[in-house]
Design a protein around this nucleic acid. Sequence first.
RNA 1: CGGGGCGUGGCUCAGCCUGGUAGAGCACCGCGUUUGGGACGCGGGGGUCGUGGGUUCAAAUCCCUCCGCCCCGACCA
Length: 480
Amino acid sequence: MPKDVITPRATDYNQWYLDIVREADLAESAEVVRGCIVVKATGWGIWEMMQRELDDRIKATGHANVQFPLLIPKSFIMKEAEHVEGFAPEVAEVTRAGGEELAEPYVVRPTSETIIGHFYSRWIRSYRDLPLLYNQWCNVMRWELRTRPFLRTSEFWWQEGHTAHATEAEAEAETLKILHDVYADFAEQVMAVPVIRGLKTEKEKFPGALRSYCIEAMMQDGRALQAGTSHNLGQNFARAFDITYTDQNNTVQHCWTTSWGVSTRLIGALIMTHSDDEGLVLPPRLAPTQVVVVPIYKSPEERAQVLEAVARITGPWHGRLRYRIDDRDNLTPGFKFNEWELKGVPLRVEVGPKDVEKGSVAVARRDLPGRAGKRFVPQAGLSEHLVALLDEMQGGLFQRALQFRAERSAVVGNYAELQQQVERGFAWAYWDGSSEDERHIQEQTRATIRCIPLDQPEAPGRCVYTGRETRQQVIFARAY
RNA sequence: CGGGGCGUGGCUCAGCCUGGUAGAGCACCGCGUUUGGGACGCGGGGGUCGUGGGUUCAAAUCCCUCCGCCCCGACCA
């Protein structure tokens, strides 16, 4: 049953996205603060689930959490040439405080490589201090001209990992470990969002990095979304901030550093991967509420009987399921069904007088919206049934997204095919062009090289643009 | 930062062209009847018409300023 508060995806995908954010009560525009949003309880609840899962993985790979200042001396940002150029247009500055002009302005952190670099240079003396593996959860600010909730806002929330190593090989191993074991694993196993792991081109890499890796996801309109990045910073920041150590041979060496991050943008990825015209669809492993129980009754006597049955039925769920009983008395069941579908709760259990009598309940699954996903099942063994259903849904969402991506992906052999394919999804193409060629293609097609996938084909082919033979394949797509 | 559109109870909007002191639906509050896919009746509360200035006897309405939001293009997690 289409909901009139949600614009169908086929009508206007962008408006659909905004409708979902509003109706699922995830966030709203901060209005009084340009380009910023207020993340509401439901939206922040999802972020907290993401944080928990990611933080476990970050700790499991040997990192500890720290916290650096929100404000960074402006001169720090200026120290690394590429970094300055990349971030200068989007930093906000604090020039006055305590009623006086500051001797040196601060910038509100757009990312923390510089201030962390400053302290790393003080903390690291010997090879015995390495590797240094820290992460911080914080908010950052990048002044944006055009914003969209979660996908691009001036303030956003993220984690940024910053590590220092003795050798290039160790830094590279760290960068890839985060990409695979933390980001890709989290995206696919927890978010049920299939991702392509790849390397950014020179044109698209992080300002100041040696190499940037990324995970790229495909949204339902065929556009690409960068869902996470992991950078090997080489010795660029180590040189700019004098991060050095003495090695086993008593020689002073520059460290090799890395940085990596994922942000609240992942909430946007989640929405645009799974949700439908009925509202938000949450994968069970990320849903703050996995099961909502809606009691159904007419008289006060029925109400008492039904609520008693609900208490008995949900008793064994403690610690196994994240659930909530919607016993609000001023709303009809039908209204609640629609509301919880809008909010993406994976499973709904209805308990009415007939169920009390027959020892059954109605279970509706969100991945099959409306009455189609509704079944009457016995109360006996219900917890196991629900746990199994959630598991099935988690896998099903991933498979559905994977299939969608496959349908919207194609290898293109020439430029005409490339132009067509980026209209609908990912265009895989052999590539041997320059940054300048890349720019030309962007001007003509609005598509960019999202990444050079880590999994490359065996056989060489001809570059889609220059016609030269190459072994390298890349993905072109329009991106968010 | 260019081009277009728009700011009126919490929300969506009408009223503006043709100036005369603000309305609807939804939401909210109270009471009653309802309740297995967005209930209904009756009663009620709530608006410096984005901001500042100007024109006028009189401005939501006409003119100017600024601010903000949305859409479309150039830059970006």
